[in-house]
Design a protein around this nucleic acid. Structure first.
Length: 467
RNA sequence: GGGCCGCUAGCUCAUCGGGUAGAGCAGGGGACUUUUAAUCCCAAGGUGCCGGGUUCGAGCCCCGGGCGGCCUACCA
């Protein structure tokens, strides 16, 4: 085999060539000489004339190679599917009208030493697709499309936030104290410091420290890690967008979420109507806003409140097959009833608002409803997309919420939070009224691409190792 | 964690009431100057996920294990 060059300069992408020469009649030869490179996807050798299909990632175009004009014609015909080649030649159309590049010179850029998957069926086995994503992405156009859309989604999200004055920051992934979400953390160890550390379950507490510091609008898009089971909606590491806006409350944040999602849908799909699992979801603003209590009442027809006797709540919970524990207060019972009876039936888009303080250790108490907090989750296509609230700013209240959490942790709830003294110290310097938001970007990508499994929007999902 | 299903050539898939496997594509050889998943001819390609058991004989039946999928549970 010929030497593999160290460099190959292209001047065109296939996508551009197709657009530029869209109207070309059959049998035309232009004076447009191009240099393109990509992977050989198909090959049709016909004696003294060879055709091939090149894929450069932007699209596919035919290569036209007559023996008379193609250098080293025999070797060109011996190329294997999957080989990378660099081509220079004129743009032309064949007798049948197929837009092609005539191979006036060519060079091998990489050999495919492993066999090409079935050129028509590609790879069907999802295990292989996830494990060998590098193969999946070039033989499965939908997979490529999904990840291109995800990339654009991230870019558009960043510019959406930057246009509104948010600055992007990066906070630690190693946390001495895990916090910001109720989730079991991964643990690790720093040798030189002889220090046990946790991989973050959320960046929340660091971002609010930055609000204390005087950054009015901050966001972070980053990986978080939760030591939980995997499913079509859960990958142990996933990408979270969190943002904090000083002087704002949860109503402002709801408006922001609506705007973001509507805009992404229009820019990425051209419509506010998305298709998920063969059902339509219209994300056009405004979205319905309803309290958790209202939605439960709609769903089960019973009246609930935090003030009613605990026994009555327990009875209702048991009627709906909620597994009740003695430690559950009224707030936890209401949340459990919501999750068991109501959440799964919601399609959305809907903002579910006003969560009990008992289950919302970082949210500020509702301005009118004692025992409730100003918190919401958005449900889209039956899935929870985000979690947001008017932030708890009072250090004393925060300490007491942390202590409740720590007590639950001590009782064996390894998802409950611990007391973060430094975070309380930060609050003591003064956190202004602040609205905060966390969005699972993988789930947002699922929504926008119509993917039914989170693994279809994560390039390399967590799997058991082979063998 | 529980239930159900799957695993056969590099890829996509067959076969059978238990009788030690077959095709297309890819890869190899040959024919072919306008093909489009090109076509045609030839040859090659297998630890039937792994390990036990039943049987004269197991890819197929039984048990255990592995990996994956779906559902469920868990999961802010």
């Amino acid at each position: 085999m010929a030497e593999i060059p160290y460099r190959f300069v292209t001047d065109s992408r296939v996508e551009e060539l197709i657009t530029r020469h869209a109207g070309l009649e059959p049998g035309q030869e232009t004076d447009h000489v191009v240099a393109i490179a990509g992977r050989l996807m198909l090959r049709r050798v016909q004696g003294k004339l060879a055709f091939a299909t090149l894929d450069d990632g932007s699209g596919r175009i035919q290569l036209f190679a007559p023996s008379k004009t193609t250098p080293e014609f025999e070797q060109f015909c011996d190329l294997n599917l999957g080989d990378w080649v660099g081509i220079t030649g004129v743009v032309m159309t064949t007798r049948r009208g197929e837009l092609s590049v005539r191979v006036d010179s060519w060079v091998v850029l990489a050999e495919a030493r492993r066999p090409f998957p079935d050129k028509w069926h590609g790879i069907n086995d999802v295990d292989t697709r996830y494990r060998q994503r590098y193969v999946d992405l070039w033989v499965t156009p939908e997979a490529r499309q999904t990840f291109l859309m995800r990339s654009r989604m991230m870019t558009l999200t960043r510019s959406f936030l930057e246009q509104r004055g948010f600055i992007e920051v990066e906070t630690p992934i190693f946390h001495p104290i895990p916090g910001g979400a109720n989730a079991r953390p991964f643990t690790t160890h720093h040798n030189a410091l002889d220090l046990d550390l946790y991989l973050r379950v959320a960046p929340e507490l660091y971002l609010k420290r930055l609000t204390v510091a005087g950054f009015e609008k901050v966001f972070e898009i980053g990986r978080v890690f939760r030591n939980e089971g995997v499913s079509t909606r859960h990958n142990p590491e996933f990408t979270m967008l969190e943002l904090y806006q000083a002087y704002a409350d949860y109503h402002d944040i709801m408006s922001l979420v609506e705007e973001l999602v509507e805009q992404l849908a229009v820019e990425l799909t051209g419509s506010t109507v998305l298709t998920v699992a063969d059902q339509e979801l219209d994300v056009a603003r405004p979205w319905r806003r309803a309290t958790m209590i209202e939605l439960i009442e709609e769903s089960i027809g019973a009246t609930l409140s935090l003030d009613m006797p605990l026994d009555e709540l327990r009875t209702i919970a048991k009627q709906h097959e909620v597994q009740v524990k003695d430690t559950f207060g009224p707030g936890k019972l209401i949340l459990e009833i919501y999750e068991k009876t109501t959440e799964g039936a919601l399609w959305g888009p809907v903002f579910v608002t006003d969560y009990p303080a008992e289950v919302s250790p970082l949210s500020r108490e509702h301005r009118d409803k004692p025992g409730m907090t100003e918190r919401f989750e958005a449900i889209l296509a039956g899935r929870e997309l985000c979690n947001a609230f008017t932030e708890l700013v009072d250090p004393e209240q925060q300490r007491s919420r942390f202590e409740d959490q720590a007590a639950q942790n001590a009782q064996g709830d390894d998802e409950a939070m611990m007391v973060d003294e430094d975070y309380i110290r930060a609050l003591e310097y003064g956190l202004p009224p602040t609205g905060g938001l966390g969005i699972g970007m993988d789930r947002l990508a699922m929504l926008l691409t119509g993917a039914s499994s989170i693994r279809d929007v994560v390039l390399f999902p967590t799997l058991r190792p082979e063998q």
